[in-house]
Amino acid sequence: MIWSTSDPETVAQLGSFLAREYARPFLALLATYQDVSASEAASRLGLHIRTAQDFLEGLAVLGIAGKTEVHEGKRPYFRYTLLAESLMLTLDLTSLRVPHSGDALDARVRERLHARADFVAARGDSLIGNVTLWSGNGRERKQHRISLTDPQGRFLFHLPFPDAEPLTIAEIMCKAGLDRDLAPEILDIVTVLAEHEVVEVLPG
């Protein structure tokens, strides 16, 4: 049986299991034995029984291993059997792209008045190199510095000032000489800056 998944959360979960240093000998043990209990695996691999139990339970939850309750004497326990012969992880990175509606580029934007942010212009070029966002007050004050990509820096360089007429994102991209293919990363930085009240977004 080939166990496969393309769900990013499941891929991340299994990835964390496989990254553990005892994962390979543990899977080898499961592949070799017909079934195994947590205490048997722990003693064989030199692990704490709790560690072995968590690993086996994780594989069972994902459906990679099956478990059967066994009654020997007074205490019941589980025996685990490997169900999958191979694992196939597929991660479609394009599915992770932040979605945006077609008219998102028509939203009018400008820098917000008294924005709590420091823009640092890149020396010798017409773009903003990074932006530092401030949040909280007094001792709770925190700063978050975002290094901008070249297109994002060019976009912010042309962002209208707080007292200027707002422009649509598409117009600013045009001024900055940016291709529409770059819209996702532009919209991403606009979203972040809008969340931090650095950019004012007005409906198109």
Binding site: E111, L113, F119, A121, S126, F161, P162, D163
Partner: peptide
């Protein structure tokens, strides 16, 4: 202006 619209960004 109605309010101080200062920003430390350069202006094209």
């Amino acid at each position: 202006a109605a309010a101080i619209g200062y920003t430390d960004r350069p202006r094209p």
